[in-house]
């Protein structure tokens, strides 16, 4: 405890009277109650819309329009998944099975190349010494402030030159070069916090650089790498403008584009179908978040606090 040191220097405090103790306790209890009330109130305000929409996917249009309560009046409607079925089948020749598969064809390779490139680059930044490192590192920090929108047009022209329009390459390739600098930064910060003892021991034992990286550093980096993988997974699932620019064939649409299309095609006729398929579209991200929310919050926190 830090207070023990200062205690000696300062005159001893008089013991609080029992009335004072009671008052403090009461104040703490009121504060606690107030906090729970605020937290629950705000939580309800934030999450109720999601519950309402979940319920709406089981309601008729007529009922969606009129009810504030999230459950349908007739609870047996909860067994009727026809909105989910219709939403999944879509009005196009493809079902959402195709679109989900497409999304995963983008997400999985992208996560893998992100992990590899970020680890290599972060390893270099956090452990090695060479001229120009500081400069490169500051470029990396600088690009976090560089709005991607400035780069869209030339990047598009470049990928067009390379004949990669209407393929997934423009969405995956940049990540193979560690330019999602937020992630590299996150791994660098994490690695800097790990003592070098184990690596030094392994060097003495004659490990080469790649063995060292694979057998010692990567296992130590696991929590940071999990954060990176999860963030990249969800951000890529959410990505809309990327596919919107580069993918033009419906057959290759990822979920985000397909949702936009479903919305445009069916307009506001079948509310429940659109709501249902939107909920389904959120499921992968929701699942990942609930399974591993610790890693998200740690990742988000470390990006802002350290360094």
């Amino acid at each position: 405890m830090s207070s023990s040191k200062t205690m000696g220097a300062r005159p001893r405090r008089r013991l609080p009277s029992s009335a004072e103790v009671l008052r403090t306790q009461r104040r703490e209890r009121i504060s606690l109650a107030l906090r729970y009330i605020i937290l629950s109130g705000v939580g309800l305000l934030m999450l109720y819309p999601l519950f309402w929409l979940l319920g709406a996917s089981f309601k008729s249009n007529q009922e969606i329009f009129t009810t504030i309560w999230f459950l349908p009046k007739d609870l047996t409607q909860l067994l009727d998944f026809s909105a989910y079925y219709n939403g999944w089948m879509t009005r196009t020749e493809f079902t959402f099975a195709t679109y989900f598969l497409n999304s995963f064809l983008i997400v999985v390779p992208r996560v893998i190349v992100t992990l590899i490139s970020c680890t290599l680059v972060a390893y270099s930044f956090a452990r090695f010494e060479y001229p120009g490192k500081k400069f490169l590192f500051s470029i990396m920090i600088g690009t976090m402030l560089l709005p991607p929108i400035v780069l869209r047009v030339p990047q598009y022209l470049m990928f067009k030159e390379l004949g990669m329009i209407d393929t997934y390459w423009p969405l995956i390739l940049p990540s193979a070069f560690a330019i999602d600098t937020f992630f590299t930064f996150l791994v660098v910060q994490f690695l800097r916090g790990i003592p070098r003892d184990m690596e030094e021991a392994a060097i003495i034992d004659g490990c080469n650089a790649l063995q060292l990286l694979w057998h010692i550093v990567v296992p130590l980096l696991k929590p940071a790498l999990i954060s990176v993988a999860l963030f990249q997974f969800i951000w890529t699932m959410n990505d809309f403008i990327g596919p919107l620019i580069y993918i033009s064939t419906v057959e290759k649409y990822p979920v985000s584009l397909a949702l936009k299309m479903s919305m445009d095609v069916s307009g506001e006729v079948d509310w429940a179908n659109i709501i249902a398929i939107s909920i389904v579209a959120l499921l992968p991200s929701l699942t990942v978040f609930f399974l591993a929310q610790r890693y998200f919050i740690e990742g988000a926190t470390s990006s802002g606090i350290k360094g």
């Binding site: 060479y130 780069l151 650089a209």
Partner: peptide, 28 residues
């Protein structure tokens, strides 16, 4: 090993290429 400049550059190489190809060049 961590004194090796060559290894340091080797590992940071993807980033140098990436930043040139996908950021600095498009930026200019």
């Amino acid at each position: 090993m961590y004194e090796s400049k060559r290894l340091g550059y080797l590992f940071v190489l993807p980033f140098i290429l990436g930043i040139l190809a996908f950021n600095l060049f498009p930026f200019a």
